[in-house]
Design a protein around this nucleic acid. Sequence first.
RNA 1: UGGGCCGUCGCCAAGUGGUAAGGCAACGGGUUUUGAUCCCGUCAUUCGUAGGUUCGAAUCCUACCGGCCCAGCCA
Length: 559
Amino acid sequence: MSHSEFEHKAPAHFIHKIIEEDLNSGKHTSIVTRFPPEPNGFLHIGHAKSICLNFGLAEQFNGACHLRFDDTNPEKENQVYIDAIAQDVQWLGFQWHGPVRYASEYFQALYDYAIELINMGKAYVCSLTAEQTREYRGTLTEPGKPSPYRDRSIADNLDLFSRMQAGEFDEGAHVLRAKIDMASPNLNMRDPVIYRIKKAHHHQTGDHWNVYPMYDYTHCISDAIEGITHSICTLEFEDHRPLYDWVLDQLPVSCHPRQIEFARLNLNYTITSKRKLKRLVDEGFVVGWDDPRLHTIAGLRRRGYTPASLRNFCEAIGVARADSVVDMAMLEFSIRDDLDKHAPRIMCVLDPLKVTITNYGDDAQWLEASNHPKDESLGKRKIPFTRTLYIDRNDFMEDPPKDYFRLSPGKEVRLRGAYILRCDQVVRDPQTGAVIELKSSIDPETLGKNPEGRKVKGVIHWVSADHAVPCEVRLYDRFFTEENPEAAGDFFQCINPNSLVTLKHCWIEPSVMENSATHFQFEREGYFCVDCKEDSASHRVFNRTVTLKDSWAKIEAKK
RNA sequence: UGGGCCGUCGCCAAGUGGUAAGGCAACGGGUUUUGAUCCCGUCAUUCGUAGGUUCGAAUCCUACCGGCCCAGCCA
């Protein structure tokens, strides 16, 4: 599906307006944005917001958006993440302008600029230990004090810095610092470290470097090198903006992007922190970064979320500067909305209860049903109707409340797409007393038409026991029991023990074997997708993306 | 308690001096061979609080209250 569905209703949030003004005033004739992830984990729903913002703005204004890996900390990064991130961006429906970029491509330029800074007397090699550096930095309320190395000669600084890169010193022995203002109320300006020694192998540059630049120094210069016009980031970088500007003001760069901050996405009942997500993965609480219970992009994809639903969600939540927590209901609305329109319908019985139709013969009757109640373009399918069916246990109640209009002894219900069925007799297990079968009869006059003289309100789904295909169905629920798992202290304590319920003995209509769709609505149950990893022709596996809205459940909950 | 930022309906969020958009949720009602979808309706005399300026304030001023971020050689 094209993006047009959401483009025309593109919202005029504050960043959109800033860009519009910059274009109208002639400050820029075109714009360039960038999405700059560090490849140290998988992307999550919060990154989707940033991706949609940066790529979306570029699309709306006919500009360009770069994908740039901010790879300045080789110890934490990995090629696996680079590949996964690039895949996620494309899956969401975006294509970066030009090649994939890496901050590490600019390491030489960054190094040369550092030498310029030293030559200008704006940077120096500091030999304080990490702990001493912290002490000298001061606190929130007290100014810092200058490092004893602050006034090293330019010659010494040049010599030391080149020897740092030459590998002559151990990690931690020296760092390169910008010389700004140790008394600044903004701690980021108290002579920030811009280079540290790391004798690590880098996934892109190999073993060439022994010194690696820090984020604050790297990001602004990388933006400038790429001609970024608007450098959009989250609120926590606001205090870094003076440093971003300071670095670019010192150097002879041809462009000085404007950093603009927006509030990151928070979603209740979930975690949007790469660090914490990584713990869940590393410590085995989930099956991997793509566990369908995780709100990683890979997890959402495996759960059955579509790119369009995620894009629409990102648009619906808006872009602003106020901290906020978006309700999960909004995410669920976005996927229901998309799948309701596009997913073919099919019947699947999750918890089978045998129904024998005593007044029906042994031959199968192939009934035709449309795959979508409103969209004929999704086609039709054949459903076999036979003497022995399975219905869902949930759709039968021996002693139902008055407002229950599914099946119960002596009552009638509509078999979706087929006949009206009456339950005549309940068969029990002589040992346990459990209901194991329903002897029923159909009204042969009710195929495709309503019965005369009575109204049958309930409709239930069913499959032919002789033709249905066995399948495994995974029911997912929210992963955390707390609205704000991060505030609950130890978020491991509030993992929902029922976040995954695996049903191994479900039955789905045989037409599923001829349908190439990956997303379905299991009628009256919810939206499900084919599990991208474990499904096979001989062992069908489906994941529940989200339930249908269920007003009956709501009525019951009120009782 | 230094600095930066933010407070508009249960949750997002427009609005930037002319008298509170929209979405989600919720709640009524209609249609329905999915208790789904769809459709119709209800849902902030009030914008963190208190003063002030003004014919007129969510929008301007002042003070206060509440929340978030910053003391990595992480990003």
